[in-house]
Design a binder for these strands. Structure first.
Lengths: 336, 336
DNA sequence: CCTTGGCGTGACAGCGCTGTCAATTTGCCG
DNA sequence: CGGCAAATTGACAGCGCTGTCACGCCAAGG
């Protein structure tokens, strides 16, 4: 039979309740007692039974991560970060793919919560911004952390300064002499799309350049959208086309480069291309992509830690800003 | 307060134990009773409390998926499949990244099992083939399903006929007139590497072509390894270099195409390139990659279903063969 | 010196479910 | 219709832990 809390208590010469207190880092245990219990736990290699703890304390020690995001690179990074945080506090993590548009989206999550009873959720874009869901979570008093939500106020989690990052990217292109810079916009439901577009526009304005609606092309973060957008851009009459394309993420940038090949354009000689996110694909295409590096894993970790802090009653948790960096690679060059 | 099993029992006019029986699909409940209970459950929107079930029955209703694989595309697919199967049977899934080479690898899993007590595991390559781990799992009597393990005997899970797939790919290249075909080998620890190499060699033999050691280049499934391998291949003197490169996976094939760009070679005009796995990158590079499509998600689902079957005492579970298909795209053409 | 109050600890009763085993009912046969 | 085995149902005692509350102790204040 496995070691139970009761066994530890007997070995340490204290009551089960005291062992429980030590296990849960509760106050009001004298230091020597605490040490004695800790020693007994270690000596007996005691592993608390999570289900029993859950049943008795009405907590699950479980965090659920919800996503509706086609970018598996992004997701595994976030997931790894959340997992690190969970391990640190002996929580488990479960993951759940969803489809925001689908009927019964909120009900599906509701059922998930009833079934698995996670103590908290980690939301990723665009789930972070589903009003119906957020309201339901408030009603049910389910705590959650958000990664890069549109509305940061009153929410805990992690984000980067996206408009600033986009401006930085634009500054780089402008410094290379580009004046006709196109932007391939991300999925309309994502905050990232708005912010990156805003940064793009602001950079143009700051440089004293006029916005050209023809150079702002809709997309949805997918490779295919990048291809489609680029086809339109590269079909523009000479003089009205771009010398540089800033895609709102790497996948679309890869699509743009793909389409450049199709149109017989050489990157970066004929046209510069840059992306955003620094997913592995940025280094796996030719030429390697100039992009903004986003510390996804770190952001997952931070968000989960904030959530865990607030779950364990260690402060209210915060919305933490993470740093980004610009990765200058071979897909950008001076304007010809 | 939430609805408990006892409440359902009262509503249905039976004992709690009978409701429990219905909940667990046990035998020896008369059909009308079963229906009565089912109706009460539905009417009251009863959700069993997993922790209570776990505590009382000593099962966790949890499957853990273990991986040590850098390909996030592959992983999220498998993960999605496993999750589908888990949902079907109201199990939860947890995921755990690991590093096979690291010290304490087996102990780490041991601790994971003690802590979370999963009812079973789903293993992915190369964890499927770690002798120390498998022995430990047998000792602890932990059930597991494997995806594409080297040793299929006595194991449940899913696989595809890899040598046959590799042969099929080679047949395609041979039919295009290629005679000097290189192979970039996968990570030595993976069964897939052996099988794909074996299929490559067998196809050569069947075509009456001699093996050329210079054309079998070591790799490790990473993009970088593809680049390195291709640099060696493309530096071979004229006449000794390949007219086609069959990389053991898509990432390396992408690396080969990348290196081709570097060497001023045009794909597929100067050299044909093909991969294996059909991950998203196969369509996101230019030219799009001819490759073998592997139904990863389906394989994850099948493996998990086999595991669940055997966990729930519904038969012993089996090692199931899944179908593959050859995707002919733009990276291959007739030999020049 | 006696309160008062807070700290440290333990006794006890469940949390919501299932295993065990006994009680009851049913079906079937002679 | 009685008798017996099998099928069906229920009573009860936990699973391993924590919430609640009661108790004993000691320092500080009057």
């Amino acid at each position: 039979m496995r070691v139970r809390l009761e066994d530890v208590a007997r070995a340490a010469g204290v009551s089960p309740k005291t062992v429980s207190r030590v296990l849960n880092d509760e106050a009001n245990v004298r230091a020597p007692t605490r040490e004695k219990v800790r020693a007994a736990m270690a000596a007996m290699d005691y592993r608390p039974h999570q289900s029993a703890r859950s049943l008795a304390s009405n907590r699950s020690f479980l965090i659920a991560m919800l996503y509706d995001n086609p970018s598996s690179n992004y997701l595994t990074e976030i997931q790894a970060g959340v997992l690190e945080a969970c391990d640190l506090h002996h929580y488990s993590m479960m993951v759940r793919p969803l489809h925001v548009g689908e009927g019964g989206f909120v009900e599906r999550i509701d059922r998930l919560i009833s079934h698995h009873r996670p103590d908290g959720l980690v939301l990723t874009p665009p789930i972070t911004d589903h009003p119906g869901l957020l309201q339901r979570l408030h009603e049910r008093r389910v705590l959650y952390a958000s990664i890069s939500p549109i509305e940061r106020k009153g929410t805990i989690g992690a984000f980067i300064d996206e408009p600033e990052a986009a401006r930085r990217m634009m500054a780089t292109l402008l410094a290379l002499g580009h004046r006709r810079i196109a932007h391939v916009i991300g999925h309309p439901g994502h905050g990232a799309s708005q912010w990156r577009l805003a940064g793009y526009r602001q950079a143009l304005a700051e440089a004293g350049l006029a916005r050209d609606p023809e150079l702002e092309v809709a997309g949805d973060f997918s490779f295919g959208a990048g291809v489609a957008a680029a086809r339109r851009l590269f079909s523009l009459p000479r003089g009205r086309g771009p010398t540089a394309v800033f895609a709102a993420n790497d996948d679309m940038a890869a699509g743009v480069i793909w389409a450049a090949g199709e149109h017989g354009l050489s990157v970066p000689r004929d046209v510069s291309v840059c992306g955003f996110d620094d997913t592995p694909i940025a280094r796996q295409i030719w030429p390697a992509l100039t992009t903004i590096h986003q510390p996804s894993r770190e952001m997952g970790r931070i968000a989960a830690l904030q959530l865990l802090d607030s779950l364990r009653g260690r402060g209210p948790g915060a919305m933490v800003q993470a740093p980004f960096s610009l990765e200058l690679r071979e897909s950008t060059a001076a304007a010809s």
